[in-house]
Design a protein around this nucleic acid. Structure first.
Length: 469
RNA sequence: GUCCCCAUCGUCUAGCCUGGUCCAGGACACCGGCCUUUCACGCCGGCGACAGGGGUUCAAAUCCCCUUGGGGACGCCA
């Protein structure tokens, strides 16, 4: 069975790069009915926080990337790691080192000066030092040979072992370093496929060597390329490095973000729009791209609009309620929700985000008396010569028994036939009167949803404004 | 600097493994048109790329080499 994992370190919020690696790992597991695990890598005691951990879990949940079992935390496995470090020590595969950070830095400088790769020079390797408070433990990296592996996305990758130095596996504070902890955890959790960011490629040979030293079976490794900003530079706060939760606040649908992230670096022929289910069915590491991809906010927006069209009215109504609440409008009671549900179909084809929908549909929800009229629109369309027509129309609407689209349309059409006017002449004035602005869904559907009372109240209010009231 | 990786329209990508069907296909964005009651949606059309140079071959986007460009790593961070 395929077992994958996502192992964030809670030193910040989950951003889209991390979300995408999590997604790919999740898909890899789901595709084959395997398990997707979660692990919190919080051995950096200083920068890891509970808030970040919670935020990351919330983000994953919002995206729908659910995991099996309780997430393990590295901070709770001190003894486990140290048992392995002791074992390596006993087996002569690791040794104590007394070199200070300054000394090591000097060694690196020396190597750099010679045009070589900066490394620890192995000074304590054969000294047979014992434990002491200021001693770290280093791994005895083979000096010769090659470390080669088959990357799930990159293909064969190889290093000369001489490129590597004797890495620290236990710090002076007794905690293990990343590479050791990861190897122990992935082994103990039964992880079979490690899919992670490109920045970990260089850790892979070190980890492979540790796997071998510990006598563990190797998992498969895969490294997904980084996400770049729209400017092809490293992702910054400005474009996509925002947290996943911010996308929710902006009115993105989780499935849209998932769809976008999936297509960024992965493809399935020419298909652009995927449901979560389709992604699970069609995902394969075979089609993961090898090169870095730039984040394109426009395409995300387009995908979001596509997914909005597919989402149910019920769900969108409650999301809309949430967005309106953020704007300080409306309530979330049942009657309000059922009203919003009638609004949704009018905006499904035109909204790119739920936030945008809320802003555009606010006029529906605002009480008639609080509707704000756009000055420019009023002076341009609510003119003196249009007034009699709006007044007559209001009277005709009032007489209607069934206040729905066909009846409204019939009334207006009859009036047009009677007066010889073009609908164009009446449409914008009506729209301004009812919505306060010049942009809205179709007039008749808008009126039907507003209902007779609101429609008339707004028409009268607009008429009143004409008189300068 | 050293090592690792990458390179198709502005962007995401298909094609590359298993050379010919590719004077390179799709999508976003952009431009034009249609539809139209505003804004959208939708539909139709347009613009637009194999980084450069050498090979191999009857034939290269596809295979090989070099150059250039980009990214990553080189921590008692993960």
């Amino acid at each position: 069975m395929i077992v994958t994992r996502f192992a964030p370190s809670p030193t910040g919020a989950l951003h889209i790069g991390g979300a995408r690696t999590a997604l790919f790992s999740w898909l890899l597991a789901k595709h084959s009915g395997g398990k997707f695990l979660l692990r919190i890598e919080d051995t950096d005691r200083e920068r890891s926080t509970e808030e970040n951990t919670k935020q990351i879990l919330d983000s994953l949940l919002w995206l729908g990337l659910d995991w099996v079992d309780k997430p393990i935390k590295q901070s709770m496995r001190y003894d486990v790691y140290n048992a392995q470090v002791e074992r390596l020590l006993e087996e002569g595969k690791a040794y104590y080192c007394s070199c200070s950070p300054e000394e090591v830095e000097a060694m690196r400088e020396e190597a750099r000066a010679k045009g070589l790769k900066p490394k620890y020079n192995g000074k304590c390797r054969e000294l047979g030092l014992g434990p002491a408070p200021h001693h770290v433990v280093r791994f005895k990296t083979p000096h010769t040979g090659k470390t080669v592996y088959e990357d799930m996305v990159k293909g064969t990758v190889a290093w000369d072992n001489s490129e590597l130095d004797d890495m620290i596996i236990r710090r002076t504070d007794g905690w293990p370093t990343y590479n050791l902890a990861v190897v122990c955890d992935d082994h103990d959790q039964g992880v079979t496929h490690v899919l992670r960011g490109d920045d970990h490629v260089n850790n892979t040979p070190r980890q492979i060597l540790l796997y071998e030293a510990l006598g563990y079976e190797l998992p498969k490794f895969g490294h997904v390329p980084m996400i770049l900003g729209p400017d092809k530079k490293k992702l910054s706060k400005r474009h996509g490095a925002r947290s996943v939760l911010e996308y929710e606040l902006d009115g993105m649908l989780p499935e849209a973000l998932i769809n976008y992230l999936a297509r960024l670096g992965w493809s399935c022929g020419d298909q652009e729009i995927f449901s979560i289910q389709e992604l699970i069915e069609k995902f394969s590491t075979q089609h993961l791209n090898k090169s870095a991809a730039a984040f394109d906010p426009d395409k995300l927006l387009w995908l979001n609009s596509q997914h909005i069209k597919e989402a149910s009215d019920d769900r969108l109504a409650s999301l809309l309620a949430g967005q309106l609440a953020m704007l300080g409008i409306g309530g979330s009671d049942a009657s309000c929700i059922s009203y919003l549900k009638k609004i949704i179909p009018l905006y499904k084809p035109r909204a790119k985000t739920m936030k945008e929908m809320a802003e555009a549909a606010a006029f529906f929800v605002l009480p008639d008396r609080e509707l704000k009229y756009d000055d420019k629109a009023v002076s341009k369309f609510l003119t003196e010569e249009i007034k009699p027509h709006l007044k007559t129309l209001a009277e005709k609407f009032e007489a209607l028994e069934t206040f729905d689209q066909p009846s409204l349309e019939a009334v207006v059409q009859a009036y047009l036939d009677e007066t010889g006017l073009k609908f164009k002449v009446l449409a914008q004035p009506l729209r301004v009167a009812l919505t306060g602005g010049t942009v809205s869904p179709g007039l008749f559907e808008t009126m039907e949803v507003l209902g007779k009372d609101s429609t008339l109240a707004r028409l009268h209010r607009a008429l009143g404004m004409l008189r300068g009231e």
